[in-house]
Structure formats: structure tokens, C-alpha cells
């Protein structure tokens, strides 16, 4: 019996889908059986980020309405034997799925997979309720900006009312130099406001966008800091205690390189 983790944020565009794709991939890299569910019906893109868009035959709404078997709708990843995706419908509406149906689907998937990663849509309406319905755990993604933290706070409040474990926090798109200058919120500041356990800090990296556009999650490429961060998050999900990559170190390395090239 696996566990279902919902990735949510409240605000749109903070990197829920990217995070879902990369956590899913990282867990698969660690040899776990993983199934990802895209619940953003009408605005799906987890399939695009995973590069599986052209393989969709059936979708979540088809499964929910019994038009196909669950295993028929699952798409196997190109790179892993043990990574699957249940895509969202593009032509339907979020109201076409009920939380009860979602619960049933997640329950069924949990029998066969170690981890079910649920990618939640932005907002706190029907789509959010569907995504949270079957989840055992939750991860809240936020960016180091006030509006995003405010929405994360709201969503944490809502998650606390659900019958799931206390949410964990990922601070995404961290720009070390902005934090240093005090132009953006500090990670510590965010954690003190939201008062939940921090499970990972992911630096802002152009390579993430580059990889997403190519349909390959960044976690596959271990050369980047963002990739390491996602892999570490996956290991923390498995229960390992991996120290947080300190931004200070990052700065030190950068400074070292800069001084190496004679820059100030």
C-alpha cells in the first residue's frame, strides 16, 4: 500500500507541475514505483513537462466516468519502467470529476504503486478539492514573494482542515542574490510565517525551463543545482535526513568562481 502526496500552492505559476514532474522522476530514479496524476482538468500540462503528450488516449475524466479501465488510461514513461502518468482531460471541466471519484481512483492506484503524486490546479475551488480528496500527505510549493506566501498560508489553513498529515513546504525559484540583498523574502522568514516543516529549497535555474520545454524533467540531469534539490526532496520523502543545501555555500562557490575569473 503506497501513499498519495498532493502538490499544491494556491497561487498559479509557482511551479507545482514542475515540482510534481521532478519529484515523480526523482522517486522513480530511486527505484520506487510512482504514478503521477494531473488533476488540472482543462489546463493540463504535466504530460507536456514529462514529454508524454502524444501518448494520451484516455484521461482522468474517462476513468472517473467508467469509460475505460484505470490501467488503460495510464501512460508509461519513456525512460522508466516504474513511472506512470494519469493525464487530465483537456476538453472537459473541473466539475466533471467529483472528490469521491478521485478518492476511488487514488485508492486503486495506491494498491499498485509506492507513491501517487497528485498535481493540483491553482485555486481553492473544485479542482483543489478533487486533488486533495484522496491524498494522505501534502506538499505546499511557494516562491519567495509576498503574494505567493500569502496564498500558501491560505492553502495550508485549508489543508489543516482536511484529514491529512501536516503539509510540508518547498520554496521554489529562490534567487540567492535577491535574498542576500533583502529584495525578496528570506527562506527563514517564509518558514517562520508559514510555520510548517521545510522539505526543500530549489534555486531559480534557467535549465529547469529549458528541460521542461524539451519534455525532460530537470531531475534527470544531475549537473544542475535544481536537479540535486529535487533529488534531495525525494530522498527526504523516503525518510532520509538530507541536510538542506545551504544558499550560503552557493554564494561562496559563486564568489570563488567570480574571484577565480577576476570578477568582483
Amino acid at each position: 500500500m503506497g501513499e498519495a502526496i498532493v502538490i499544491t500552492s494556491g497561487k498559479g505559476g509557482v511551479g507545482k507541475t514542475t515540482t510534481s514532474a521532478n519529484i515523480g522522476t526523482s522517486l522513480a530514479l530511486l527505484g520506487k514505483r510512482v504514478c503521477m496524476i494531473d488533476t488540472d482538468i482543462g489546463l493540463r500540462n504535466l504530460d507536456v513537462v514529462m514529454g508524454l503528450e502524444n501518448r494520451i488516449i484516455y484521461d482522468l475524466v474517462d476513468v472517473a466516468h467508467g469509460r475505460c479501465k484505470l490501467h488503460q488510461a495510464l501512460i508509461k514513461d519513456k525512460r522508466f519502467e516504474c513511472l506512470y502518468l494519469l493525464p487530465a482531460a483537456q476538453t472537459k471541466d473541473k466539475h466533471d470529476v467529483e472528490p469521491e471519484q478521485m478518492k476511488k481512483i487514488v485508492q486503486e492506484l495506491k494498491q499498485d504503486y509506492d507513491y501517487v503524486i497528485i498535481d493540483c490546479p491553482a485555486g481553492i475551488e473544485q479542482g483543489y478539492k478533487n486533488a486533495v480528496a484522496g491524498a494522505d500527505k501534502s506538499i505546499v510549493v511557494t516562491n519567495p514573494e509576498t503574494s505567493s506566501v500569502r496564498d500558501a498560508d491560505r492553502i495550508i489553513g485549508l489543508l489543516e482542515q482536511e484529514d491529512i498529515e501536516p503539509p510540508k513546504l518547498i520554496v521554489n525559484r529562490v534567487k540567492a542574490h535577491m535574498m542576500e540583498n533583502g529584495d525578496s523574502l528570506d527562506v527563514d522568514e517564509i518558514v517562520s510565517i508559514l510555520a510548517i516543516e521545510l522539505i526543500g529549497v530549489v534555486v531559480d535555474d534557467e535549465n529547469v525551463i529549458r528541460a521542461s520545454n524539451r519534455g525532460e524533467p530537470i531531475a534527470l540531469n544531475p549537473d544542475t543545482k535544481a536537479s540535486i534539490a529535487y533529488r534531495n526532496i525525494a530522498r527526504r520523502i523516503l525518510g532520509e535526513s538530507v541536510p538542506l543545501m545551504s544558499l550560503q555555500q552557493d554564494k561562496g562557490l559563486l564568489k570563488k568562481m567570480k574571484s577565480f575569473f577576476g570578477m568582483r
Binding site: 500569502r150 498560508d153 491560505r154 495550508i156 489553513g157
Partner: peptide, 20 residues
Amino acid sequence: RSGQVLKVQGDLLLIGDVNP
């Protein structure tokens, strides 16, 4: 947290924060 409202009759002693 944001969006939450706590309403009581009488005095309120809140052991915790009130977030923005």
C-alpha cells in the same frame, strides 16, 4: 492563517500567530 477568521465571545487568548 490567511483567509481564516476566529470569532469568540468574551476575551480571546490566542497562543499562536495571526498571519497576514
